[in-house]
Each structure stands twice: as structure tokens, then as C-alpha cells.
Design a protein around this nucleic acid. Structure first.
Lengths: 110, 110
DNA sequence: TGTATATATATCGTAACACACAGTACCGTG
DNA sequence: CACGGTACTGTGTGTTACGATATATATACA
């Protein structure tokens, strides 16, 4: 397994975590999420990954969606916002994430 | 997806990372690795997960193995140790991991 | 006989992410 | 008008790490 393959594995779960973090800050739409993630090579992902993921989060009720007109000449955007359930889940994820970081820190032996 | 399922996803890649970190500190054997991981619920895993993983790391040349007699009354243990290639890979992983942490920190908006 | 330590293997399933592809709509330039 | 570029939304199929469950082997000790 190359380091690139490993990066793919690392994204499992963390990508979902990152997207929820983004949406919690403020409602966002697919294209914006993809553009933002592009700035961070560690978790960059394309439409074929992001849209199915957003659809799943919608289906699970962690986020909600609404359409909004854009500035003139631009197609409408589908915004995603956090739900109560999403916030609860994100809190649980954050707690687990902290546990993971502590575990790694200890295993590093520092 | 429940939080338990998310924990499973998060282990992808991180479990491999953790095991390499452990073996870098000092050569270890399967049973000890499993026992140590049990102390950290975030990355706990059993034989059915750990042994195939160790076999994969061996096959990829990231770790090596050697048998060693145990204390009287115990069966011999198969120890795993880091290889040069494993160290290089671990360094690359650590760099990616740092990138990931930075990205998450920024996305959290702090 | 049963428990504990220790190292494995086999089969099957799940689900997240990746690759390739598809479609709509507007704009500016040649 | 055709073309490339940008903004925006998706679909279908494949790969593969990790998980559940079960089984196999061997030694020591109560």
C-alpha cells in the first residue's frame, strides 16, 4: 500500500467529520465544500466522493438542505445545514477523535 | 451510521499507523499489540483484524519478524520489528497526519 | 477436564471512498 | 456561432480495509 493509498484510507470517517465541522460553522453547498477541501491536500476530495457523502448525511438526518438562488448568471445552489441530530453526532465524534489523539500520543511514547 | 460504525471507519489507516508507532518503540508480538490496543477503546481491535494486518505489513516489507523463546511455560512468540522501509513509510504517514490535524484545526475555525 | 497464554487461518459481509462519466447553464473571446 | 472556461449538480461501478464468526494448534497448570 502506497502512501497515497493510505491517505485514501485515512479519509474514511475523517472526511465526514471535516464536512460536519464545516457545515456547523455555516451552511454551505457542494461546490464550496469541494473547493475548500482542495486547499487541504490531506483531505481533498472530488464531486464523486462529496455528493454521495452529502446525500448519505441527509438520509441519516445529520444535515438538512435548501435551495437558494445565486447572484445573477449563476445556477442555484443546494445549501446544507446542521440538524440537532447532526450536532449530537458531531459531539460524539469529537469526543472519539480526542480519545484517538490521546491514544496516538501515548503510543508515540512522549 | 452509528457512532460505533464511525469508529470502525476511523480505524482505517489509523490502526496501521498506531501499530507501526508501537513497533518502532520496540519490537512486539501480536498478542501484546492486541492487549495494548485494548487499553484504548478508540482503536481497540482483535486477532481477526490485527493478524491479517501484520501479515500485510510483513508482505509489504514495512516490518520484519523473528521467533523468540518466552519465559518457561509459555509458547514462543513471533516478534515484529521495524524495517528501513517501514521507518520511511512511518515518516511519510506522520507528515500526512500532521497535515490532517492542521486541516481539522482550521476547519474547526479556531 | 478446563482455563489461560499465544499464534494464527478461512469465509463472508459491509460500506466509504475513487475513477470515469454525464448533464445543465452562463459568460467572454475569436 | 462555436469554443473554452467556470459554476454547479450528480450517477454507476469497482476496490479494499476492517469486522463477525468460527476453527486449529500447542503448552502449562489446577
Amino acid at each position: 500500500m502506497s502512501i497515497e493509498d493510505w491517505k485514501t484510507q485515512i479519509k474514511r470517517g475523517t472526511l465526514e467529520f471535516c464536512i460536519l465541522l464545516m457545515i456547523r460553522r455555516q451552511p454551505s453547498y457542494g461546490y464550496e465544500i469541494i473547493s475548500t477541501l482542495e486547499q487541504y491536500p490531506a483531505i481533498a476530495a472530488r464531486e464523486n466522493t462529496i455528493y454521495p457523502l452529502l446525500r448519505r448525511l441527509l438520509k441519516e438526518g445529520l444535515i438538512s438542505s435548501f435551495w437558494q438562488e445565486s447572484a445573477e448568471g449563476l445556477p442555484p445552489r443546494k445549501y446544507y445545514a446542521m440538524t440537532e441530530k447532526g450536532l449530537d453526532t458531531l459531539d460524539a465524534m469529537s469526543a472519539e477523535w480526542t480519545n484517538l489523539l490521546n491514544a496516538i500520543h501515548t503510543l508515540k511514547g512522549e
